[in-house]
Design a protein around this nucleic acid. Sequence first.
DNA 1: AAAACGGGGGC
DNA 2: GCCCCAGTTTT
Length: 209
Amino acid sequence: MPVIRKVVRGFRDPSVTQIAKRSRSPFRVLVSTVISARTKDEVTGAASERLYALASTPEEMSRLRITSIEKAIYPAGFYKTKARTIKKLCRILVDEYGSMVPDEIDELVRLPGVGRKTANLVLTLGFRKPGICVDTHVHRVCNRLGAVKTKNPTETEFALREVLPKRNWIEINDLLVMYGQAVCNPVSPWCSRCGILRHCGCVGVTRSR
DNA sequence: AAAACGGGGGC
DNA sequence: GCCCCAGTTTT
């Protein structure tokens, strides 16, 4: 992990940390993350702020009109779907969880619009609990390295759980994704800047730069 | 396993 | 125009 930290240094995008810091409460992390699916961070951040300005609690948010939510989170991708999801999500939080966000992954993934990636982000960022967030970047990087051969992000999450240090969850999640975005990116991996190239199965396959 | 959801931004 | 994008749900 120190190697990855070194490799990624200089590529860290402060916007991620900013959003994380602003959105510390589990509820804010949850809503921000639902908005963030297939959407750039700057857009997610702006959309989240507009929505929180309208409603800052599950009760308030569950009472917003769908169209108000849509307007607030536009131009995030899937904004119509997400608006309905968020309203439904908040209603469930109010009705079934006493307006609190559950802090167990099995409960979180039961919520609409919440998959394992989102659930783990809520656990780590919102509750400071253990969790490994596997998005498409992390899934790709792990398999490109050849260290694991997993079919889907959930399998990758379980594989990583056996390997990663069991601490510093937030930083490790951040570094893994940063690494996948900035260095070991999909199209043109920056192999000359990669500190773990000698362990990499991508040599001769996707290697470049 | 693959399609659908959906629109903005880069080129 | 065409392709990409910190996913989740449905078929």
